[in-house]
Computed example of a mutant assay.
Amino acid sequence: MTALTSQISLPSLGGEDRGPLSAVRSGPATTDSPAPATTAGAGTPRVIGLDLSMTATGIATWDGRPLSTVRTVASDGDQRLRRIMVTVRADAYDYVAKTPIDLAVIEDLPTHAHGAGITGMVHGAVRVALMELGVPYALVPPATLKKFATGRGNATKPDMRMALFQRAGLDIRDDNQVDAWWLRAAGLEYLGHPLLELPKAQRDALAKVAWPEAVAG
């Protein structure tokens, strides 16, 4: 797995020029990705999947770039939040069309962890970034994502990886990237642009998600 450093020129928000900032990410776990599983075709909604974590945030971008993980180290302290936020903001903006993307799909915190924990800090920073850009976002509970991907709400991480391999032919070793891929797939499924043919019972799991009205499917 290689470390990639990119210079990002963010759009001006609220009259403030953010200037170029650096974001460091690792990945991809594999580049053997079949085009239909990852590449957004003409007319496909611009959707990203985000598996948020202070140490390793998985990202499935809207434009078909390889899956990636934003990795941080504890010694950077709260600067890690800024690094994650900068990266997400860059990935949630279409620099060609000069507009925000259509939807971000985020794996929600477990019910018992709401309102607390380090991952909650990351959720706050990322949601602020998305709100500043005007990108609507949906929160998908872990059990719902698992049922959508595998048919079982108590699926394990290896189950999620295997489902991705069996359904899309993608052998992804990074669990953060696997979750991010399934989150993006869930968003595209809801918007009527499915990446995969899934059983109805799995697709119906997404009915429990509170999708934003701005992107009603």
Rank of each mutant, 00 (worst) to 15 (best):
L10I: 05
S33C: 06
L52P: 08
V47G: 01
A40Q: 12
S6P: 00
P28Q: 10
A56T: 01
T72R: 13
V47A: 04
R18G: 01
G14S: 09
G14W: 09
S26R: 13
G27V: 03
V47T: 08
T61Q: 10
G27A: 07
P11V: 10
T5M: 11
G58M: 07
V24E: 13
S9A: 14
V86K: 02
T44M: 12
R89E: 04
S33P: 00
T44P: 03
T39E: 14
S12L: 07
T5R: 13
A92Y: 10
S9G: 05
R46C: 02
T57I: 04
V73E: 13
A23I: 15
V88C: 07
A29M: 09
T87Y: 02
M85W: 03
W62H: 14
G64M: 06
S26Y: 12
A56D: 05
V47C: 07
G19H: 07
P20M: 04
E16W: 15
L81C: 07
A37L: 08
A90P: 02
R46G: 01
G49W: 09
A74Q: 13
P28N: 02
R89H: 03
P36T: 07
L21N: 03
P36Q: 10
A35H: 08
T39G: 01
D51F: 06
P66H: 04
A60M: 11
D94L: 00
I84V: 15
M54Q: 08
G77D: 06
P20N: 04
A60E: 11
T61R: 15
R25I: 08
L13Y: 13
V73W: 12
G58K: 02
G43F: 11
